[in-house]
Design a protein around this nucleic acid. Sequence first.
RNA 1: GUCGGGGUAGUACAGCGGUAGUACGUCGCCCUCAUGAGGCGAAGGUCGUGAGUUCAAAUCUCACCCCCGACACCA
Length: 484
Amino acid sequence: MGKFYVTTPIFYVNDKPHIGTAYAVIVADILARWHKIKGEDVFFLTGTDEHGEKIEKSAEKMGKSPKEFVDEIAEKFKSTWKELNIEYDKFIRTTDKDHEYAVAFITDLINKKGDIYKGEYEGWYCVPDETFLTDLELKDGRCPACGREVKKMKEENYFFKLSKYQEKLLSLYSNNSSFVIPDFRLREVENRIKEGLHDLDITRKSVKWGIPFELDKSFTIYVWLDALTNYLSGIGWPNNKDFTELWSNSVHVVGKEINWFHSVIWPAFLMSAGIDPPKQVLVHGWWTIDGKKISKSFGNAIDPVDLVKRYSSDALRYALIKEKRIWDDGDFSEESLKARINGELAADLGNLVYRTLTLVEKFEGELEGTPELDSKLKLNKIVEAMDNFDTYLALSIIWDFIKETNKYVTDREPWKLKEKELGNVLYNLLEAIRIIATLLYPFIPHTSNRIFSQLGISASKLEDCKFTEIHSRPRKGEPLFKKV
RNA sequence: GUCGGGGUAGUACAGCGGUAGUACGUCGCCCUCAUGAGGCGAAGGUCGUGAGUUCAAAUCUCACCCCCGACACCA
């Protein structure tokens, strides 16, 4: 049986979940469920990144210990994912003991390889951002990220020999052109590497809230070596010996701002530790809200839980996927969400199921016939699109089939038919709906399950997406979507 | 600044060498099983600007303008 391992970024607990974080998790959930209906053995990992000075300070500001603080926020993330109907297998926290063990372990492997050295950093440091900066990076003498003052620093630090892996990384990309999806993100990273890599600082001296750096206890491990290792510790590395089967089928869903860390730094760490790189990094684009960038502080950072409560998790999931391709940027607006609920979910899909089941309930004959709609189903194209992570295209092709099915109703005018002729049309409609519900399951699982239940059947798999025989007696239920 | 993406119908996008397409919106028609749902049709674009290559350019080349992103802790 095939395996599939999908991860989301682990989210920094200094912030609440918003539409952007929710998006990465929804994409991963859709991929996970897609592989499940393909009959594969799936593992879906998400979690939270909980170390660092910012967390320490935020906790202090709220009069809490860092541990109390991160416990609370981790719960907030978990409950949000529950609202969004996210079916993850494990929620990892970087404060988990087994994760901390794995980080110490990989650090040791990298050190034994001779890739860690003590060096001296001289330059600028932005305290609130915990970031070292070069002269070039400063903007008007200030931190380019936050605009605050920087101070001159001369500090000993530990470095990872990233520069040593320049050629190896480039050959990883040329031997595996789909390592980073989409390809322009691979080129972006490739070009930057060709400009030259410099070694990476991997420790912090001033930060207490972190994993101790075993080589020198006066330091803690800085974010990337800690956070990235979650993808291994999440599936039981280093003690789980058969983690390789999952690992060789792994996909990291990440935002474009952290592509560099996942496509360059992470494989370099792994090469150093003697572990294969993940199979693929899927880089998603960003959302604007009503045309404006998501502001970190407040304002337009829409709460996904609020949207779910006012509409539904399926409506939100559908709208986010139907709005843009994964790697594109796009705009989210409640207006467009409503338009999709009314025009697509309610009118195309909901109404199709409802009108069909009304006809079925009035009909007393046999639900059997000859497949007539099967030629309209472009199953291969859907599978191909999904395998290329083009969820947008896949969903569009499924929707074409829904439209064809509605057209079939108009063309065959079942309200004028009776007996065998009517039974044949209803047979075609019910089988089409069953297949539609199956294909939509990864995207809108709750709705699919409601359709299955109205059809009187249990959930079906991708291999069942063909016209067969009907053995159940469907019963009409509530409309799937109400207009808003 | 360097690198990358983009600029196509009112809006969102696809097409990437051979008579400009899809969805939504707008307008008209048909249907009545259905959630005022469904189906059909029409209007609407000098494809960012300028030059070049070609029998032929949204598509290739060059220059320019504008928008967005990455540049080492923004999902």
